[in-house]
């Protein structure tokens, strides 16, 4: 049914009238004060959560001289990407970046596959000693030998100063296994049974039925695992004492943040840094900001799209209690 423009406008006006008047009559002054304060406090806190990232960002893309004078506070000026390209000259940073990316991808992939497989296996009643082995595995969540014994253990295994210390100890993650197991238990058993009747082996059932059906939970643990790997910093600090080429990006950032203001000497090792502009770009504050930004960007880019999975993750955890 077509409506004329006039009718539409009338309708809108009517709605607006109703809306405003409803409010007016329903809201008491106390309510208004409450609403205002409530919105204000949440608004301010949200600002406190966003603004630092924004401030960091505008200071890395603005004109370096202005940044050093401290005039860039709210609005970026003299936008350029020179700081980011200058970072490419710093060899220890690019290697740290690669290490972080490699451990995030490899570590997460192995952890997810292992969790899925273990989660599936421990639902199989017929396994020899199932209950015992499941407890053997899950109970490790609640005790910890302590940082020094664990360190000595890694040393004994020859894993210190080795990339594999980032990956191997994290493959079996008891908490994630519980999540996957709980999820797999909710998949109707008939699916498996009918496949078994058709002659499918356990591995086939796992690949063709369990894996595809448990993708939501696997996505959730993958995201948490990836964030954990990307943010991980103390393992680099503890285990890589004589392998600086295997430092993670977070560890590098920590080192840079603690460095005295002049980092030019460090840059020299990175190769040809002759350009005066690049040199000034790499001075203290700006390089710290830029590396911070490089480290935080992956999280900021990924988070809004995957927020749903993050929230599902915490709820699954809550169900388990």
């Amino acid at each position: 049914m077509a409506k004329t423009a006039q009718e539409k406008a009338d309708l809108r006006a009517e709605k607006l009238y109703k809306k405003t008047h409803k409010r007016k009559y329903r809201l008491k002054p106390g309510d208004i004060i409450f609403e205002v304060i409530n919105y204000l406090i949440f608004g301010l806190f949200t600002l406190a959560c966003i603004f630092p990232f924004y401030y960091l960002f505008i200071n890395t893309i603005s004109d370096n001289d202005m940044v050093l004078k401290g005039t860039i506070n709210f609005i970026p000026r003299g936008i350029h990407l020179g700081n980011y390209t200058a970072l490419l000259n710093v060899s220890d940073l690019s290697s740290a970046f690669l290490v972080s990316v490699a451990r995030t991808i490899l570590g997460t992939a192995l952890m997810v596959v292992a969790s899925a497989l273990i989660g599936y296996l421990v639902t199989k009643q017929e396994m020899w000693g199932r209950k015992f082995w499941y407890r053997f595995l899950v109970i490790t969540m609640y005790f910890n030998a302590g940082i020094i014994p664990v360190f000595l253990n890694m040393q004994m295994l020859g894993l210190t100063n080795s990339f594999w210390v980032y990956i191997i100890p994290g493959i079996v993650a008891p908490y994630n296994i519980i999540l996957v197991k709980t999820y797999i238990e909710s998949i109707p058993g008939e699916l498996e049974e009918s496949a078994a009747i058709d002659g499918a082996t356990y591995m086939t059932i796992f690949r063709r039925i369990i894996w595809p059906l448990s993708k939501p939970i696997l996505a959730t643990i993958a995201i948490f695992g990836a964030v954990g790997h990307w943010n991980s910093f103390t393992d680099s600090l503890i285990y890589m004492q004589s392998a600086p080429n295997l430092y993670t990006l977070q560890h590098r950032l920590y080192i840079y943040l603690n460095q005295a203001s002049n980092l030019k000497s460090l840059m020299q090792s990175g190769g040809s840094v002759s350009d005066a502009a690049i040199q000034s770009a790499l001075s203290g504050k700006i390089i710290k900001y830029t590396i911070s930004m490089v480290t935080v960007i992956p999280i900021l880019l990924v988070y809004p799209f995957l927020q749903r999975y993050f929230e599902e993750g915490i709820m699954l955890g809550a169900v388990k209690g």
């Binding site: 630092p52 990232f53 960091l56 964030v227 990307w230 943010n231 991980s232 910093f233 977070q250 560890h251 950032l253 920590y254 943040l257 710290k288 900001y289 911070s292 480290t295 935080v296 999280i299 988070y303 993050f310």
Partner: peptide, 10 residues
Amino acid sequence: FISWVLVYAI
């Protein structure tokens, strides 16, 4: 979801 190092950077 950011690490403590990044919180310190902030």
